[in-house]
Amino acid sequence: MVFTETKRYYVERRITERMVATSNPSFSGYFAYLRSELRDEVEQFINAFTVNETYFYREDHQLDCLSTDLLQERVATKRPGDPIRIWSVPCSTGEEPYSIAIWLLENWKEVDAYDIEIVGSDIDTRVLEAAAEGIFGKRALMRLSPELVGRYFHELGDDRWQILDDLRQSVRFSRVNLIETRETRPQGRFDVIFCRNVLIYFDDESRRVAAENLYDNLMPGGFICLGHTESMSRISPLFEVCRYSGAIVYRRPQELRA
């Protein structure tokens, strides 16, 4: 992660939070504490620095592209009953993987004909716990119609809604650091990866490593969707650019035959 001068306030605020939380009045005291690796402080520190703000159906033109183009293309070489694997990384508190599940239920008429596996991963263990719990506030649901909220959530009161148990069970969550190959590789290969708005926080070297890991995690012919301001072409030459009416996505080329 690289923080420029404009992010100084953000960095100071997060470090101050951790100093208060660990009762360290001075930075040098906190730094020594962090170095000592006591009480998972390194993990807490990482958690404090990861940004968690998202909502359901964010960038839904990509979801549209998923059901109208990407999956149609993926199933062309599959048989009914075969697995389709979709990875949401980073998944934050679960809005994206659950959005994918709801979108497919609503918009993809073959949702019961394939063994769809949706995996949500994040480096931050706190958000993963929240994601598995599946409780959301009004803001996270603002883009969903009242019908959709009624169909897939139950109201808990106090402007909080919990996603239905079946949907919670349909997404698996795991902790993954995108630049650690030993953590990305065990996730296996996917048909489609959503990796939105995270590579922008990495420096050039980490971004290149992450791109290579993501390439590894794609099946040949599999797709990766980035945030709409991001471009894989500037990061890695490994991928093909695919232009669909709804979105630009990147593809791992089909394996060359000798």
């Binding site: 239920l105 019961d112 063994d115 897939y152 079946d166 949907l167 349909s170």
Partner: peptide, 22 residues
């Protein structure tokens, strides 16, 4: 056994007035 499929069928049937168990 697939949670997503159960949800898909459940929403279809509930919209048509059925009571659904899984």
């Amino acid at each position: 056994d697939a949670a997503l499929v159960r949800t898909y069928y459940r929403t279809a049937l509930e919209q048509s007035g059925f009571l659904v168990e899984e």
